[in-house]
Design a protein around this nucleic acid. Structure first.
Length: 279
DNA sequence: CTCCAGGCTTTAG
DNA sequence: CTAAAGCATGGA
């Protein structure tokens, strides 16, 4: 078991894990257990920091984006009035670096769905074909590999509760070879987005989530129903200055990326987390 | 019962 | 090109 710590100045596990970018976490008292790919970690609060106990410290240092300094990002974004409250609310958010294959599957499942049910579906899929693993925290199932997911057909997915998304996964999983994923990583963001949107069940919003959470691309801004509410509620006045913006989610996304550039994805997470907690 | 969830595909105009 | 129906499931 390997260990390292993350200072609590710009990191809060609740903000980071529960802001919508990630699904496989479990709160146990003051601690969190997280599963990513075939790895697992336990996060515990200690004095001025969090202790991370895991099977692979290098993996989780990258996962938690430990080499980025979020205080710089926040200082810059706080200059904008409407960002002050969302940043205060989600002050410990960090953008996670998640496995690409897993991120594609998870966000296809996420469409027109709620987070609780998404989590249940993912756990059932992992338990069905993922590799059973044991560490000192107990047993868990790794997220399935492509080979393991290829064992499932559309009716298997239906039986696991995926609804109409079953057909999307049955169609898309065979395309997600290592070759496709490697090629995808080498593309610039617009080209990568086109490749992703060629997959069944992947539209603009899901593609942007994959680019942000699975490929480290900050210059995207996924727009879902929640962000749409933010836009109409807080940015309606400003949007009037941009006559091309009507009510298309794609255009809302472009609006924010033009404004925030490579920090767009982070801005989106602050707004999403803030908006969801208000309901 | 209806409405909604980190939307997408398909079809119609 | 834009608009809207249809889609599975489970919780409120």
């Amino acid at each position: 078991m390997e260990k390292f710590t993350i200072k609590n100045t710009d990191f809060n596990p609740t903000h980071t894990l529960e802001c919508g970018q990630f699904f496989r976490y479990q709160k146990v008292g003051q601690d969190y257990l997280v599963i990513s790919g075939c790895h697992r970690a336990k996060i515990s609060p200690i004095k001025d920091a969090y202790l991370i106990e895991c099977d692979d410290a290098i993996y989780f240092k990258k996962f938690f984006d430990t080499k980025s300094d979020y205080s710089i990002y926040k200082r810059q974004l706080k200059k904008i009035d409407y960002m002050i409250e969302p940043i205060a609310h989600g002050s410990g958010i960090r953008l996670l670096c998640q496995p690409l294959f897993e991120t594609i599957i998870n966000f296809i499942i996420s469409q027109n769905n709620n987070i609780k049910r998404i989590q249940g579906i993912i756990e059932r899929i992992a338990a069905k074909v993922g590799t059973k693993t044991c560490d000192e925290f107990g047993e868990f199932y790794a997220f399935p590999t492509q080979t393991q997911l290829l064992k499932l057909n559309e009716s298997d997915y239906l039986a696991l509760g995926l609804g109409y998304r079953a057909a999307y996964l049955a169609d898309t999983v065979p395309h997600l070879t290592d070759e496709f994923l490697t090629n995808l990583q080498e593309q610039k963001t617009p080209e990568a987005r086109k490749m992703l949107m060629s997959l069944k069940g992947v539209g603009r919003k899901v593609a942007d989530c994959i680019l942000l959470f699975g490929m480290g691309r900050g210059n995207v801004f996924p727009v879902d129903v929640w962000v749409e509410r933010v836009f109409f509620q807080y940015f309606g006045v400003e949007a009037i200055k941009y006559p091309k913006i009507k009510n298309s989610r794609e255009k809302m996304s472009d609006f924010f990326v033009n404004k925030f550039g490579s920090l767009s994805g982070l801005v989106q997470q602050y707004l999403f987390y803030s908006m969801r907690e208000k309901v």
